[in-house]
């Protein structure tokens, strides 16, 4: 049996503060296969972003282990692409110099970098904007720059934390469609954190529901809608409705629980 893309084994995360200890994640285990598109949903503070950050190696875990592509994650994980809601495009670099940044870090020669940047600009429909500074672009365009930057060094695994959360509803659909296309064409493994159930179902092949504090995996729903999907039309399919029902039934008491606190 081939090694899974990501294997999360009994991962625990406790935050120790002044006079109290908070359990963010309680013995979470999950296996994500290569090429899967997995969405994490759950109430705020359930630890879904924490888990994502642990796969990225930004946050250390209290106990347990995460194995990514056969290697245990112990420090910053440079074999993943990482995209968050926050604007991580460097404002002092032009679009093309932002996209070539990861290649620069990896010592790719400049002619090859240029070629790659051109390809990436085409991939995210930003041709002609290479010389622009991020401030000259709209929020959606900056997001696409971040996407291109992340894809430039070809990580097989993409970790995304509410990447389209700050975008308006229409733009969100456009970005989702673009992401699905890239995922299929380039055979990525994607872990996608969102609080938008519809987004999770429209994109993912598997949706994982987290319970409120302490964060545990409560329920997993397989989404049987075949790819390629149309992120807009998918909403009117019966499978979508069924999945939404199941997920909402599991998720809503958790959200109510969170509100009571």
């Amino acid at each position: 049996m081939p090694e899974a893309a990501i294997r999360i084994e009994q991962v625990d995360k406790r935050y120790v503060g002044r006079g109290r200890e908070v359990v963010a994640l309680d013995h979470v285990s999950l296996t994500i296969e290569e090429g899967e598109f997995v969405a994490f949903v759950g109430p705020s503070g359930c630890g879904k972003s924490t888990l994502l950050n642990m796969i990225a190696g930004i946050i250390p875990m209290t106990s347990g282990e995460i194995v990514h592509e056969g290697r245990q994650v112990a420090s910053i994980n440079r074999r993943v692409g990482y995209l968050t809601q926050a604007d991580s495009v460097l404002p002092w670099r032009t679009v093309e110099r932002n996209i070539s940044l990861p290649l620069e870090y990896r010592g790719v020669p400049s002619t090859e970098r240029q070629k790659r940047v051109e390809e990436m600009l085409a991939l995210v429909d930003l041709r002609g904007f290479g010389k622009a500074f991020p401030k000259e672009l709209s929020g959606g365009m900056r997001k696409r720059v971040a996407l291109a930057q992340m894809l430039a060094y070809e990580p097989k695994t993409l970790l995304m934390d509410e990447p389209f959360g700050a975008l308006d509803a229409q733009l969100k659909l456009v970005m989702q469609q673009q992401l699905l296309r890239i995922w299929q064409e380039h055979k990525k493994t994607i872990v996608f954190v969102t609080h938008d159930l519809a987004e999770a179902i429209a994109l993912a092949s598997r949706v994982v529901v987290f319970s409120g504090r302490p964060g545990r995996i409560k329920y997993i729903e397989q989404i049987d809608i075949p790819y390629p999907r149309d992120v807009f039309k998918v909403r009117f399919l019966p499978q979508f409705e069924a999945a939404y029902d199941n997920l909402w039934r599991e998720l809503s008491p958790e959200i109510a629980k969170g509100e009571d606190l």
Binding site: A56, G57, I58, I76, N77, R78, V80, G81, Y82, T84, A86, D87, S88, L90, W92, R93, L101, P102, E104, Y105, R106, Q149, M150, Y153
Partner: peptide, 25 residues
């Protein structure tokens, strides 16, 4: 810190973060 984390994951070394993030910022 978002810039620092993002660039580290992209493969930046300590010096890379210094050169491309901290100093320009």
């Amino acid at each position: 810190p978002i810039y620092i984390h993002a660039t580290q994951i992209m493969g930046a070394s300590q010096w890379g973060v210094m050169r491309t993030v901290i100093i320009p910022s």
